[in-house]
Simulated assay, not measured.
Amino acid sequence: MESMHLTPRLALAASFVPEGARLADIGTDHGKLPVSLLLSGRVRAAVGSDIRPGPLAHAARNAREHGVTLPLRLAPGLDGVTPEECDTITIAGMGGETIAGILRQAPWALDGRHLLILQAMTMLPMLRCWLAENGCMIEAERICREGRKFYVVTLARGGSSPWQLSPLDSTAPAWLSADPLARDYFTHLLRREEAMLHGLEKSRAPEPEALEIQRRLVNGLRARMEGIK
């Protein structure tokens, strides 16, 4: 059977899925991630969920054409999934605020028995802070690139005590420094944060505290980049 092609972003998410996992793929779209993992035998079972009937119909067709069993649920977030039918949850291709909202509505996903594989398209610093504040340890992160865009996949697990991240570590965490793409990614982040600092400095009435936080963030990013080999 022909394998399912995954983009670098989805392939990176797939690489975090443990062997023999029971997967719930939230926002499954056309089901490419779970179908690929079922085809390779990496997962022993998978379920896909989405809020849109059209993509779910496409996912059903993909599963059927590739000869795999993929139950599909038309439901928001994790509403269509039970805690007992999965031990690994993937949520990819959504904004960080949306991902946090999905997890907030399903406290069982943060019980420590479920591995979270998250890929935020926007607001990643906010998502990292939310995970920390809600007792989720960030076990690993990796960067990938598609064209000119960078994406980060986050591996997290709940069940711990709340903790805090500094503005620097929520934006450009030290644990990413060893990633092969760290220098390019941090350069991208530095340009963005420098532009934000420039905007604050040029504003008519900048908030002193916000200005100082942004300056510290930019200086911290520069120092962190100097430490990358």
Results as ranks from 00 to 15, higher is better:
1 M>H: 14
3 S>H: 14
5 H>M: 15
8 P>Y: 08
14 A>R: 05
15 S>M: 07
15 S>R: 13
20 G>P: 08
24 A>L: 00
29 D>S: 00
30 H>V: 09
31 G>E: 01
35 V>I: 11
39 L>P: 04
40 S>M: 05
49 S>V: 15
50 D>K: 02
52 R>Q: 01
55 P>Q: 06
58 H>E: 15
58 H>T: 15
61 R>P: 05
62 N>Y: 00
64 R>K: 10
65 E>G: 08
65 E>P: 08
65 E>I: 05
65 E>W: 06
68 V>Q: 01
72 L>D: 01
73 R>S: 05
77 G>P: 05
80 G>T: 02
82 T>P: 01
87 D>I: 03
94 M>T: 01
95 G>S: 07
96 G>E: 00
99 I>W: 03
100 A>K: 07
101 G>V: 08
102 I>F: 01
102 I>R: 03
104 R>E: 15
109 A>K: 11
109 A>R: 10
110 L>F: 09
112 G>R: 11
113 R>C: 06
114 H>W: 02
114 H>M: 02
115 L>Q: 11
121 M>G: 07
124 L>M: 05
128 R>I: 02
132 A>R: 11
133 E>Q: 10
140 A>H: 13
142 R>H: 08
142 R>L: 09
143 I>F: 04
148 R>D: 14
148 R>Y: 08
150 F>E: 03
150 F>K: 09
150 F>P: 12
150 F>R: 07
151 Y>S: 08
165 L>F: 06
166 S>H: 02
170 S>G: 04
173 P>K: 05
179 D>I: 10
185 Y>F: 15
185 Y>D: 08
188 H>I: 08
192 R>A: 15
193 E>P: 02
193 E>K: 08
196 M>R: 15
197 L>A: 04
203 S>M: 11
207 E>C: 13
208 P>L: 05
209 E>K: 14
211 L>Y: 02
213 I>L: 15
215 R>T: 10
217 L>T: 11
220 G>A: 07
220 G>K: 07
221 L>K: 11
221 L>H: 05
222 R>I: 14
223 A>V: 02
225 M>E: 07
226 E>Q: 15
227 G>A: 13
228 I>H: 12
228 I>L: 14
